[in-house]
């Protein structure tokens, strides 16, 4: 297992493995996403308090979780890059940022659409909403830094450093509803105590979460794969890949 992971750090090996892996994850995302969508829109019961409007949870919560999870994974790659300076870590750190930014935007927009009918407002400056908005700005800032100079390898170190620094915001988002009084409600899943969500709703939420997770992983791997090929365009292994041969 460890040797396999070490081999994955080698660019030609990563390029070879990530293609089928990304395609497999795309199929898995579709296989889960279709029943997930049906469960979200029709297969789950109406909520006793909120009625049908609560169904946006099946998109809002997976997107919000992914926005934090993808950032954590990018930070993991940033640390790997900082220590080993491997090109695969650098491209995966870069590849995760746009997908994470999209998930943050989806979480903010769906949350806003959900807030109006339930809370009575599209937006409030409470700790949860504000820290999630900060996450979007951190993603956008890192993406700007990633494309600052034409030779991408020159900003790798700065990008890794600032990605690690931005990680402080993630526990802040996650625990904001515990630390402070917020308009946003507390945790339904992962909080200690009694079940806060009907089992069939929880299962539907998990199906949707895995679908979004696999889709994000497929997109990030595909992006990382081509970033790697572009970065290493002059090395011999790229010229030996038949898909990349120039006529």
């Amino acid at each position: 297992m460890l040797t396999f992971l070490k081999q994955l750090g080698s660019p030609p090996r990563f390029f070879k493995v990530s293609g089928p892996l990304s395609r497999g994850l795309t199929i898995a995302a579709a296989l889960l996403g279709i029943p997930g969508l049906w469960l979200a829109l029709a297969g789950t019961p109406t909520d006793a308090q909120q009625g049908e409007v609560y169904r946006i949870i099946y998109l809002h919560v997976p997107a919000a979780w992914m926005s934090m999870f993808l950032y954590s994974v990018a930070t993991g790659y940033a640390v790997l890059y900082w220590i080993w300076r491997s090109p695969v870590s650098a491209v995966m750190m870069r590849a995760l940022l746009p997908t994470g930014a999209w998930m943050t935007l989806v979480a903010l927009v769906t949350g806003s659409l959900w807030g109006k009918p339930t809370w009575g407002t599209y937006w409030v400056w409470d700790a949860r909403l504000t820290s999630e908005l900060m996450l979007l700005f951190i993603y956008l800032g890192l993406m700007a830094l990633a494309h600052l100079v034409e030779d991408e390898t020159k900003t790798d170190r700065a990008l890794a450093l600032f990605t690690v620094v931005g990680m402080v915001n993630i526990p802040l988002i996650y625990f904001s509803v515990v630390f402070w009084n917020t308009l946003h409600q507390g945790m339904s899943i992962g909080a200690p105590g009694a079940a806060r969500m009907a089992p069939e709703m929880k299962i539907a939420l998990l199906v949707c979460t895995f679908a979004v997770w696999f889709a994000c992983a497929a997109i990030a791997l595909a992006r990382g794969r081509w970033l790697l090929a572009m970065r290493e365009a002059r090395s011999r292994w790229v010229r030996e890949v038949p898909e990349l041969a120039t006529p």
Binding site: P45, T46, D47, A48, Q49, Q50, Y54, I57, T118, W119, G120, T121, V124, L183, Q185, G186, M187, S188, A191, R196, M197, A198, M201
Partner: peptide, 14 residues
Amino acid sequence: ILAKHDENYMPPKL
């Protein structure tokens, strides 16, 4: 006035 809903999601009969 804003409503603050809780973190419980249950079908009506439960």
